[in-house]
Amino acid sequence: MNKIAFVLAASALSATAAFAEGEAPAADAAATEAAAPVVTDTDANGTFSLVEVQAVYTAVTEETFKAADTDASGELSAEELQAAVDAGTFVAA
């Protein structure tokens, strides 16, 4: 048990040192590189229109957009947009 606590404490200290030196941990750097592009809600209505999505995901067609719009509201919620990105339906060019 003491060995586990020591290993965890040593890991925490090395992570703190990396932050103090201005280095990002490797996991954070990889996540930043793999982050999906951001779709901007230009009209600030809380959902994403086809035009807003196409500004980033230029290959999205009306058909693929409608397929991602699971509640048939005509716009995508943040959850619907994320699901389409996660499924590989929306791929940034």
Rank of each mutant, 00 (worst) to 15 (best):
L76K: 05
V38I: 15
A31T: 13
T70E: 00
L50D: 03
N45P: 14
E79I: 06
I4F: 05
E23K: 04
E21H: 02
A72L: 12
T64C: 06
T61D: 01
A30G: 02
D43W: 01
A10I: 09
V91C: 08
T32N: 15
V56W: 03
G88C: 01
E79G: 07
Q82C: 15
A68R: 07
T40E: 15
S73R: 00
L13C: 03
A92R: 00
F65G: 11
V85K: 01
A78D: 08
L8G: 06
V38Y: 02
E62D: 05
T32M: 12
A12M: 14
L13I: 08
V53D: 07
T16R: 00
A26Y: 12
T61G: 03
E79Q: 15
K66D: 12
L13S: 12
G74M: 04
A26E: 07
G88A: 04
T47D: 00
A68P: 15
P37W: 13
A24Y: 06
T47A: 08
A72N: 11
N2K: 14
Q54R: 11
E52H: 10
T42E: 03
A31D: 09
E23M: 10
S14I: 11
Q54C: 05
P37S: 13
V38G: 03
A31F: 02
A78F: 15
A18I: 13
V51I: 14
V85C: 04
S77I: 11
S49L: 10
A92Q: 07
D28Q: 08
A84R: 00
A18P: 00
A27Q: 02
Y57G: 07
A93C: 12
A18V: 00
A83S: 11
A36W: 04
A5Y: 14
T16D: 10
A93G: 11
Q54S: 13
Q54A: 09
L81W: 02
K66A: 13
V91W: 01
V53H: 01
V53P: 15
T40Y: 04
E63H: 00
A44V: 14
A93P: 14
G88S: 11
A18D: 05
S49N: 04
L50R: 02
A15S: 05
T58W: 05
A84N: 08
A92L: 06
G88W: 00
T32S: 06
S77W: 10
I4P: 04
V85Y: 12
A55D: 05
G74T: 08
T64M: 07
A10E: 02
E33Q: 14
E33M: 10
L50F: 04
Q82N: 12
T32G: 04
V56L: 03
L13Y: 00
E63T: 11
Q82R: 08
M1T: 09
A78I: 14
F48V: 10
F48E: 01
Q54L: 04
A92T: 01
S14F: 08
V51R: 15
A12G: 09
A12N: 07
K66Y: 08
L13R: 01
